[in-house]
């Protein structure tokens, strides 16, 4: 290759050659400069700064995800090499009664716990927004359960409270309820104790609602007052519509989170999903199959079905959101 020392074309070529490559003879004191546009340089810098995240994204999230997609078409017990079985795992899912039961339990949990959690968060956010002494402290106190909620310690406390002949039973017996259910140990009530535990973790959506409430212009309420609208009407006509983007946000996050709930069911049922599979959440069954039975193929297939289900539900929520979410800027 022959290079000329003059001419823009040659310079552009040289800019892409390695600096210390020994390929290019350089005059003393004259380093070739990369001629990148400002835009390109900024993009380069951005990717450089993003590099640690990209490495993590590809190495820890994307790579394993694709690997699990492949594993889901195999029979794989971790110890011997995977063995391709095509759609065998997915086919087995259709005929697995425990899979059906896990789907049912999880849908019930998501369907009941998410509305309760969001309703509770909204209710408390409105209460706390009305200006009170030591508001910061109160907010922090209400947030504590969210920090503790998914911990093992609280799950154990829950077991003590709602277990066979537990604290709750003792208390309701004092009030004359004889032979109360065994809550956690009764398959008809067990999942609802987990719903209560989830509802108790309203801290994160509450904080988000509080921030949203702060952003609603005071003038709207003042105008409503002047027009004689009472508080409930103000809430329905001003607060709710203006908060609806945040309700959508919280709804999506909570739905995704609830589909993936694992720790409380695992700890409270001692890892069994019992009694009688009534707390066998989807993720818990996935864990049992993958790590208990060492059936990684089956576990991976379950994981992909869950992913698709969550994407579908999220998409459905977004599709309906056009009807009930109100964006102030768009309206204006």
């Amino acid at each position: 290759m022959q290079l000329e020392s003059r001419g823009s074309q040659a310079r552009a070529v040289r800019a892409w050659l390695p600096r210390a490559g020994g390929l290019v003879e350089q005059g003393p004191g004259r380093l070739p400069r990369r001629k990148l546009s400002r835009r390109q340089r900024e993009a380069l810098a951005a990717y450089l700064f993003l590099l640690p995240w990209l490495v993590g994204m590809v190495g820890i999230t994307l790579g394993p995800m694709l690997a699990s997609l492949w594993i889901s078409f195999t029979r794989y017990n971790l110890l011997s090499p995977p063995h391709w079985i095509g759609l065998g795992n997915y086919d087995a899912l259709l005929h697995d009664p425990l899979f059906a039961s896990a789907v049912k339990v999880t849908l019930l949990y998501v369907g009941v716990s998410v509305p309760i959690q969001i309703g509770f968060a909204l209710f408390l956010a409105v209460l706390l927004n009305r200006g009170m002494k030591a508001l910061g402290l109160v907010r922090a106190v209400y947030y504590i359960p969210s920090l503790l909620g998914s911990s093992v310690a609280i799950a154990i406390v829950w077991r003590t409270l709602f277990g066979y002949d537990g604290t709750v039973d003792r208390v309701v017996e004092l009030f004359g309820w004889h032979n109360p259910p065994a809550w956690i140990d009764d398959p008809h009530t067990a999942v609802y104790t987990l719903v209560v535990l989830a509802a108790w973790q309203f801290g994160a959506p509450m904080i988000i609602f509080l921030a949203g409430l702060r952003n609603i212009p005071k003038e709207l309420y003042e105008a409503a007052d002047v027009d004689g609208a009472h508080r409930w009407l103000q809430f329905r006509r001003i607060t709710l519509p203006l908060l609806s983007p945040l309700i959508l946000f919280n709804l999506v996050l909570q739905v995704i989170g609830s589909f993936q709930a694992f720790t409380p069911a695992y700890v409270i049922s001692g890892g069994t999903g019992g009694p009688a599979s009534s707390t066998l959440f989807y993720t818990l069954y996935l864990y049992q199959e993958a790590f208990g039975q060492l059936d990684m193929g089956y576990g991976s297939a379950m994981a992909w079905v869950l992913l698709v289900a969550i994407v579908a539900v999220t998409a459905a929520i977004f599709a309906t959101s056009r009807r009930w979410v109100f964006y102030m800027d768009r309206q204006a």
Binding site: R159, G163, Y164, D165, A182, I184, D185, D186, I268, S269, G270, T272, G274, P275, A276
Partner: peptide
């Protein structure tokens, strides 16, 4: 069964 469930969970 409920008492046994408690024992299993324990």
């Amino acid at each position: 069964g409920t008492l046994e469930a408690a024992a299993i969970e324990n």
